[in-house]
Design a protein around this nucleic acid. Sequence first.
RNA 1: GCCCGCUUGGCGGAAUGGUAGACGCAACGGACUUAAAAUCCGUAGGCCCUUUACCGGGCCGUCCCGGUUCAAGUCCGGGAGCGGGCACCA
Length: 857
Amino acid sequence: MTGMARYNFKETEAKWQAAWADHRVFAAAADPARPKYYVLEMFPYPSGRIHMGHVRNYTLGDVVARHRRALGFNVLHPMGWDAFGLPAENAARDSKIHPATWTYDNIANMRAELRRMGLSLDWEREIATCHPGYYGHQQRLFLEFLAAGLVYRKEAFVNWDPVDQTVLANEQVIDGKGWRSGAPVEKRKLSQWFLKITAYAEELLDALKTLDRWPEKVRLMQENWIGRSSGAEVRFKIQGRPEPLTIFTTRPDTLFGASFLAISPDHALADELAKADPKLKAFIAECRARGTSEAAIEAAEKLGYDTGLKAAHPFLTGKTLPVYVANFVLIDYGSGAIFGCPAHDQRDLDFARKYKLPVIPVVCPPGEDAATFKVGDVAYTENGTIINSEFLNGLDVETAKQEVGKRLGAIGTGHPTTVWRLRDWLVSRQRYWGCPIPVIHCEACGIVPVPFKDLPVRLPDDVTFERPGNPLDHHPTWKHVNCPACGKPARRETDTFDTFVDSSWYFARYCSPRADQPVIKAEGDYWLAVDQYIGGVEHAILHLLYSRFFMRAMKKTGHVSIDEPFAGLFTQGMVCHESYRSNDGRWLYPEDVTKRDDGTAVETATGQLVAIGRREVMSKSKKNVVAPAAIIDTYGADTARLFMLSDSPPERDLEWTEAGVDGAWRYINRLWRLVDEPKVALPAASEPKPAKLSPAAEAVWRGAHKTIAAVSESLAEFRFNVAVAQIRTLTNDLEALDGKGPGEAWALRQGLDTAVRLIGPMIPHIAEELWHKLGHTEMLCNEPWPKADPALLVDETVTVAVQVNGKLRATVALPRDASEAQAREVALAQPNVTTAMGGKPPRKVIVVPNRIINIVV
RNA sequence: GCCCGCUUGGCGGAAUGGUAGACGCAACGGACUUAAAAUCCGUAGGCCCUUUACCGGGCCGUCCCGGUUCAAGUCCGGGAGCGGGCACCA
């Protein structure tokens, strides 16, 4: 026996990683003569270690990249770092490490870990968003957007943490409190920078229809997020005031049912009235103090304050409506003011009951009597016949909406309009570790852009994190500059960009990562758009929407020629694991737990029984994490990759199990032995097909071609788990072949070549090694994808199922494409079939060629 | 509240409207071994019939109810459970 020498993954993986790097196999270059394919996985935040989610993400991308490469595409597959962000500042505060040091050290660690995965990446294009060579170009883009009218600065209410003295993103406000300080968050009006994403609201919505290689789910989420509402704007005259009050409604048909108007506490009119009305002022303050969290809103009562103002109904002479300030009216949706129609809107109804306002039904449900129809505790929001509404009476809701629109236009008090849920993108953050916003505030000149020649505006290195607030603002000298326009002393903007800005164009920068402009046009025109983008569904809205906006803005400013950055999108599932908890409530890492045969588990160190929790997404807080580095040490990258691809479809969550990893490892060793210790001497690769093949050899040979066809299709459809299963079936068949019959050695070699070639994108190191063991001299990663011979995909004899009344009674072997008469005859001759027919004559026989025969009696 | 998705053996999952359970994990029986690991062979949805055994056969079965069809895991309608997105959006 040659011995069960196990496959030495350490040596092999290192060897091929070095070979690929030495030959610059994956370095991409634009070549207009070849079709391109741009594969991209969402770049990681450099937290310090790669996690299983990364392993899954990059494995999926690598399979696509290597497969496309084999199909003859010029593949671009780059990697970089989403390197700005708050954790670096927290590290600085907590551990006194400079954010830059922390970040670059983490990048070095993670790059080393990623390299061990054997990914077909072009590392020469690596970028980090915290590098001035990246963010300087981002500053230039911002200034060009500013010049193009896509940027503005305005006062906005923001979440302000009074302890940390910083603005917080909505996601950082938990139950109305700052996530770090725990202090109640205040609403503060601050001057902030905005990108005018709403300018593209309609386009961003309409273009979703063209993204036919995006998941339906993501398109829907974006559609809801952009949120188009059609309705009407109505201008109400207010008694004693020159200016009308403009409201927005989606239900202009219910205008005759209006019983009040309500404006937001943040509305300019409320502000103005509050100056003369201390009670109103107090009411507004109370509204603002209320939490913005979901729970707070749920619990919050609908509160209103009657301003005493009276608004005139546009169509009912003499009828007036009271004007309230109400806590549930949002300032930044529509016009920040509404009319309330209690009969047909639940919230308005609740409000009306509370403040004893009239409830006037104007839509009568089908089947109800208009004279007696009343609204109780539940507003009626469905379609019906309009009543109590003058010229609208008798119309349905839709027609009435149109009619009101026309009438409002005719008397000049309103018009049909569309409003959007989408808000402009607030990009300023009071943080250090981000891209500085490149403007200068001058007393005399106002906002002055930093001249291009002075870019990048670099972050200063010498900052302190002892004081709360923005270190850039505290810096003794950084912000003091002279105005580029008038030369007088001025102040540099100390806000930095939201890190979502950094990730909104990095995929374009990869096209020309060292260029002295954001994107070299020719390079971008060749490589963009990204053909296949892969990442977590958690970015389904923000990152993807911002990037779609950025491409349009970059097109407008002449940097790219496309609107849509990602032609294809795939959202992968999460990696899950059981969680373990000790008696005393400590979470335990899987590596500190020993599973026993009876299904229970103990803490290895203490022998104490531990509670096994349900499988859930791996998270540091529950310690149900497995470090990729440890798995690669023990089993190798190929095993980790194979497990990631096996079992679960990539869009679903995957449970990481030790047993599953063992299974992948076993398969890799089987594959190794199959080539390393073949049952018979393999003929040379060039050996022609022998004249005679045994039936087993014939079956394996045909099977190899069927596998090529099936795997090619599965890979194209992202059904990697199925592709793995198909290749495993082929290798099972190869193992079963004893190799002694005529042509079997030849068929075995054909099958092995095929199996190794097909599995190459998934487990590239061992595949490369086996490919050479099989006598090939080219690197597998440079070999073309095999083609299935269509003639071998169909068998001479097919097994056809025979049903009687839809129930399977027999299977029969028939020549392929046998005549219907022959099929029928053979089927009816089956003893089992005649028994099932019970002596009755067939009423009908359905013959689906090569598949099924159904006899109806 | 609005919108969306999912539900198949002990588990992950396969299945162009056409033979449900491919492939794997776990399990069980056996071989090899002093032993273990590794490896190999075999069993395997449930219930039942036939048989010494093999071979065979029947009924049920893809969350539930109903429908379309020669034929439904798959299509249509209704419901339940689980999961996700948005949410005081006028």
